[in-house]
Structure formats: structure tokens, C-alpha cells
Simulated scan of single mutants.
Amino acid sequence: MILWVDEPDFQPEAYPMLQRLQRRGLEIRFCDDFGPHKKYFPYCRDFARDGLDLALADDDLMYPRRWLEILIRASGHVHEIPAYRAHRMKTNAGDATLADYNSWTPAPVGSNSHANFLTGGAGVLLPPRLQSAIKDAGTQFLDVAPRADDIWLNALAIRSGYRRRVVDAAGQHLTIYPRSQEQALHYENVSEGKNDTQLAAVFSLADVTSIASDNAANDITTKP
């Protein structure tokens, strides 16, 4: 497990809890301030060549005991990314654009689709080939989606041919620490509508076409 820290003068020895975790195997590594992207980008940049799956977790959530075990068991399907939580993206009929983020609904458990928009905080497993694509794309996310790591990851997944499968989270309860970064980012992107701005900057016509194609059987579109 790696904790990425973007404060150069951060001193782990000032935190006894972190020292205890380090003795149990936690690595603390330093990186530039990539915002929410720092939980995956520095690893992909430096270690994608190792060929290991990467499980994403936020540092302001408390995860249940079998969280990682269930996520790993759901892996192994070719061209799929397992994720505990996802929204079903909707497209606007006639103009090949995405419907507003706030109009999306939860993706069905067990579904596997380009229209499934994974949210990494609940838990997601990134396969090695997607990590390489993330590395190759570099820091473009700073220009188009600096505060929305999920948007960037879903777009690169589509372009790399990976659909997102929703894992059954029955009995898996996540606890969010009060006044956490997770809550602040959610308010900024969802309540203030910044997700839609970043979606428009990231998702190409080809991306939206892939989403619309997978939605066609279920007629998940927004009528004009």
C-alpha cells in the first residue's frame, strides 16, 4: 500500500499512526500536487512496467474488511475493469453529447458497459495495460480535468477498450470521515456543475459514440 503525499516538508515521524502503518508495510512516497489524480498517476508513471494490478482507495474513507478481497476476485475478465460503484452515462439523442451528470442513474450491479462511469473512491482495480495508457497520456488531465480523476480514467478506459463491470457491494459499507476532502470535491464537481464542464473537455465524439452504442439496447438517452 502506498500513500502519496504532495507536501515536500511532510514528516511521517510526526505521526505515530503512520509510523505504525509503515512497520506493517505502508510506503509513503512524495509526488507533485496532482490533486485527486495523485492516487494513481505517480504509480502508473513510475511502475506501470511492473505489470501489477493497481487498486485505488482514498485516504479519507474507511474500507470494510473484505473490500480488497472481493475486488480482486472480480478481476481477471479480459477488457474489463471491476469497480464497486458506477453511474450509467446517458447521451442526448440527436447531437452525440453526454446528458448532464446529475441526470445519470446508478449502473446495475453486474453490468459491463462503456456507459458505466466508475467512481474510484469506492474501489476500482486498474489493469497493467490501462496503467501504460495512463502513463503515455501524461499530465494532460491537468488541462482538461484537474479536479476530476474519474472523468479522465473513464475516458482512457474507453479508448483502451475496457468496459467497466459493477461489482456486488452487498455488505460493503464505506465510512466517509466528516469534513473530508472527498466531501469538498463532491460539492465542487457535482453541486457546482463542474463535472459537466470537465466531461465536455475530455470526452471526444468517438468516446460518446462508444457510450451511445452500448446504451442502444437499453435506450438510455435523453430526448430533445
Rank of each mutant, 00 (worst) to 15 (best):
W4L: 06
E7Y: 07
P16W: 07
L18T: 07
R20P: 02
R20T: 14
L21G: 00
R24A: 15
L26I: 01
C31N: 06
D32Y: 06
F34H: 12
P42I: 07
C44V: 00
R45H: 14
D46G: 03
D50V: 05
L56Y: 07
D59K: 02
D60I: 06
M62V: 15
Y63I: 03
E69T: 15
L71N: 10
R73L: 15
A74V: 08
S75R: 00
E80V: 14
Y84Q: 02
A93F: 15
G94L: 02
D95Q: 11
T97C: 10
D100S: 15
P106Y: 12
G110A: 09
S111H: 11
A115T: 03
F117H: 13
G120C: 06
G123F: 08
L126E: 01
R129V: 11
Q131H: 03
Q131L: 15
A133E: 11
A133K: 09
I134S: 05
G138V: 08
G138I: 08
T139E: 11
L142I: 01
L142P: 02
A148M: 09
A148S: 13
D150H: 02
W152I: 02
N154L: 03
A169N: 10
A170Y: 13
Y177D: 04
Q181S: 14
E188G: 07
S191D: 14
E192F: 12
A200N: 10
F203M: 11
D207E: 02
V208T: 07
S210N: 08
D214W: 08
N215H: 06
T222R: 05
